[in-house]
Design a binder for these strands. Sequence first.
DNA 1: TATTTGAGCAAACAGGTGTTCGCCAATTAA
DNA 2: TTAATTGGCGAACACCTGTTTGCTCAAATA
Lengths: 201, 201
Amino acid sequence: MAITRSEQKEKTRRAIIDAAIAQLGVEKSFASLSLREVAREAGIAPTSFYRHFKDMEELGLTLVDECGLTLRQIMRKARKRFEKGGSVIKTSVTTFMEVTDTNPNIFRLLFHERSGTTQALRTAVDREIQFFIVELTDYIQNIGYEKESAFAQAEAMVAIVFNAGAESLEAKPNQRSEVEKRAIQQLRYIAAGAKTLHLDK
Amino acid sequence: MAITRSEQKEKTRRAIIDAAIAQLGVEKSFASLSLREVAREAGIAPTSFYRHFKDMEELGLTLVDECGLTLRQIMRKARKRFEKGGSVIKTSVTTFMEVTDTNPNIFRLLFHERSGTTQALRTAVDREIQFFIVELTDYIQNIGYEKESAFAQAEAMVAIVFNAGAESLEAKPNQRSEVEKRAIQQLRYIAAGAKTLHLDK
DNA sequence: TATTTGAGCAAACAGGTGTTCGCCAATTAA
DNA sequence: TTAATTGGCGAACACCTGTTTGCTCAAATA
């Protein structure tokens, strides 16, 4: 007995998820993804899809969860790095860009479905991004800002970093470092602005 | 002779455009919009669509142009208002929110297709947004910043305002003023940050 | 007045879609 | 060993899609 049944099941479930991610290229949004296409790419019959997901939306939610993992991975990596010293902002942006460049399609899904088609997916994506913002808000509060200001800073920073991420995905490789540099500059504006507006009394 | 032929043609062309915009609600992206659906909503036969547009993509580009007009309208309105005095930032954000609340679907198209499916649409949307950024860059340069810094500020501000616009569209009406207030605060951070980082020597 | 033009449409085609049904074969449980 | 479970599949269903063809018939032109 080489592999058990549940192992096999997990395997094709993975195949379906990977097939979906693979198809989420530049010219394919999740909404324009068909069950049959995904099944074809995963190497199974269309009907077998239902053994693993109720419908495409359930698959979509699973993909968003996958995004959540990626985002957490970014935060862990960044934290490890700047605990060893170095600029917090620069390290964070660089790490973010690194991870999104490694998983472009996962990031594309997140970015796209944020303003996407189905309510459920939008809510799920929003939850992941909010988690990201809250983490950052906590950090900013810990360095001495009030909650309201910290949240505004965090939200703005996340908006800029996501914007830069999307820009980077579409840019040619040699332009990416410029996008990254600019994003760092923009975050510094926010940090410096918050400092002068809230701490210089 | 009540109406000429070309007047009638323009009329149904308008009907097609309006039908498309009307369908671009929360649960419909342009990519998931079908020719037949649009034709149905416009009250014409599917085949008649081809008398006005080569295909759906051409219609999409036309819609993006429509967005361009809306963006320019925002700028004109805002400029008129703050020439009469008042905070530039606050006036601009308020005007932006006002116009997007009036044309939610137009804005949704812009926001969605920025990271959308077809290359042509993405390019067109990007051009409109770049135009917006360039206008703002000029303004910031005129008040004494170098080009590079001005562009970084402008890009960040546009990212934040667009983000707030999208947030506002999904938020309940009573939360919108908070979103707007926060966006204003975020832009002020950027303005203040750029000032301390570039002008205090 | 006679002719040309062109917006609009019905029918039809080929091809894609989601989903149901019943069956198989192999792993699991009794 | 026997029985139950279950992942996978082929066929078929009804429906929707984009697009072509050939036709009207009223407006524009000559």
